[in-house]
């Protein structure tokens, strides 16, 4: 789906990431972990084509990203940015319907099928009852779920999600994780930023650790996600616990 070739990111004079070369395939779920300001969001914005990399190349579905037509790109890849913006009042359903934009002809009304698809995404995330509500009247966590529903309505085979689970309560976090797990099981590729390594244990096939000084560590969850690596990543000791055959990571 997505290949990075010697990708380097910088912010001002500071080098965030050097020579990142990874391949994200269909049905893989990558979790990006790292400290605040280590370049997680910058990486996602770059992969989404919003920012240019300092060096290197990004290939989307076998074609250089900067040579992929925009509409085509929007059908291949959906990006949930960290901040959701909203200048004008808009209902939840209207927002989720915007996810269908890459599929509509220049001046075409959304079809009943589009509306049904949007409503289905809302229902998956426990938002069906809020479809007619104004976004401004929602809580932060609810708005985050609306953002996720919008990205799902885009039906792209690759999802770039910047902290989709932040601000969500326990039940809705687990529900959203289950929805993402279903997507991955159906062959969607996911690259997702999180601050909780336990999310990785739950759904990720791969993790990408960004150290913020150019170094990175990427690979299958089993190899890369260890207490030692996390301790180094967060510059704070992390312990691994076993419970019912599952691994848990806790700060000490």
């Amino acid at each position: 789906m997505l290949v990075t070739e010697s990708l380097s990111l910088a912010r001002g004079a500071r080098c965030l990431l050097t020579n990142l070369s990874i391949t994200i395939r269909a049905g893989e779920c990558w979790l990006v972990l790292g400290e605040n300001g280590c370049g997680k969001s910058t990486l996602l914005a770059t992969l989404a084509g919003w920012q240019l990399p300092a060096a290197g190349r990004i290939m989307l579905a076998g074609r250089p990203l900067d040579q992929t037509p925009r509409r085509e790109r929007a059908r291949q890849m959906a990006w949930l940015a960290q901040q959701d913006e909203q200048a004008f009042p808009q209902t939840v359903l209207e927002r989720v319907l915007t996810g269908r934009f890459p599929y509509l002809a220049r001046w075409q009304w959304e079809s009943e099928a589009d509306v049904a698809l949007a409503r289905a995404q809302l229902a998956r995330l426990d938002l069906a009852g809020l479809a007619g509500r104004d976004l401004a009247a929602l809580s932060g966590g609810e708005r985050r779920r609306v953002g996720l529903a919008t990205v799902l309505a885009q039906e792209a085979p690759l999802l770039l999600l910047d902290e989709p689970l932040s601000q969500l309560d326990v039940r809705h976090q687990q529900q959203a994780l289950q929805v993402l797990q279903d997507c991955v099981a159906q062959g969607t590729a996911v690259l997702m930023v999180s601050h909780d390594p336990n999310h990785a244990v739950q759904i990720a096939s791969h993790v990408l650790l960004l150290f913020g000084d150019g170094r990175y560590l990427a690979g299958p969850v089993g190899d890369v996600l260890t207490a030692a690596h996390l301790g180094e990543l967060y510059r704070h000791p992390v312990r691994e616990l076993q419970d019912g055959g599952r691994r848990w990571f806790m700060p000490t």
């Binding site: 914005a45 989404a48 084509g49 919003w50 925009r70 509409r71 085509e72 790109r73 929007a74 059908r75 959906a78 990006w79 949930l80 940015a81 901040q83 959701d84 913006e85 909203q86 200048a87 004008f88 808009q90 927002r95 915007t98 996810g99 934009f101 890459p102 919008t150 885009q154």
Partner: peptide, 16 residues
Amino acid sequence: NILGIGLQHSHSLGLN
């Protein structure tokens, strides 16, 4: 309509 929501969202949906 999309542009009014936000620049990053517009970009993600394929607008220049």
